[in-house]
């Protein structure tokens, strides 16, 4: 399997590429609509701001190719912003539209959330946290309950349809840490920064894509 990682100027795609290579497949960086159309499996990584993510994808003319690739059933992995951008809109900087592939919103962690000891929870939610599995996606096979993944974000997704939720994670309240719907798996955490369990997830995505 060869996976195509979409480069739209939002961060750490080299890390994603190297992590895929380490997990045993080949991975290339793509920047054009044609290359997105031609890809067998797509990965949309990204860190930073939602609005800039949308603007960059728009400016590069990638939006319709990404949306039609996803709708056609092509295996898709979204990471961090690559999860958030799938949603209808985000409350980051007022309100900003997303790709609307998954109905729902992207919302900020509420200020003034406190932990059990009464201390204010820090934002961004930064560091290693665990997943509660709501729906056993093939992407999570072989990953033990209680495994930690690396997160760094201030916003999270709130899907309209809870049936798309694959995992949730606790930070103050429970938030949605990954979704799985048909060919789409997208996660708020960074598998490319989550050591062995992260590489396992990437390997699972490749196997999933192989079977698709």
């Amino acid at each position: 399997m060869h996976v195509s990682i979409i480069d739209y100027g939002m961060g750490n795609l080299r890390s994603v590429q190297k992590a895929f290579e380490k997990s045993g497949c080949t991975a290339g960086i793509v920047t054009s609509a044609q290359a997105v159309d031609d890809a067998r499996a797509l990965v949309l990584p990204g860190v930073g701001a939602f609005r800039k993510c949308f603007e960059n994808l728009d400016r590069l003319g990638l939006i319709s190719s990404i949306v039609s690739s996803i709708r056609s059933g092509k295996p898709f992995l979204g990471i961090c912003l690559g999860l958030q951008i799938l949603f209808s809109d985000s409350e980051e900087f007022g309100s900003c539209p997303g790709l609307d592939v998954i109905k729902g919103r992207v919302v900020r962690f509420p200020a003034e959330q406190r932990d059990s000891g009464g201390r204010l929870l820090k934002i961004p939610h930064m560091g290693w946290n665990v997943l509660s599995v709501r729906k056993q996606a093939p992407h999570l096979s072989g990953i033990e309950a209680g495994a930690h993944f690396y997160f760094v974000h201030s916003y999270y997704v709130a899907p309209d349809d809870p049936a798309v939720i694959a995992t949730t994670t606790g930070y103050g309240a429970e938030f949605v840490s990954s979704i799985w719907k048909d060919n789409i798996f997208a996660c708020q955490f960074h598998p490319e920064k989550s050591q062995a369990v992260g590489l396992q997830l990437l390997k699972n995505f490749t196997s999933f894509a192989d079977r698709a």
Binding site: Y150, V152, S194, Q195
Partner: peptide, 8 residues
């Protein structure tokens, strides 16, 4: 380092 170690 980034080619071998997958953590922040």
């Amino acid at each position: 380092t980034a080619a071998e170690v997958f953590m922040p």
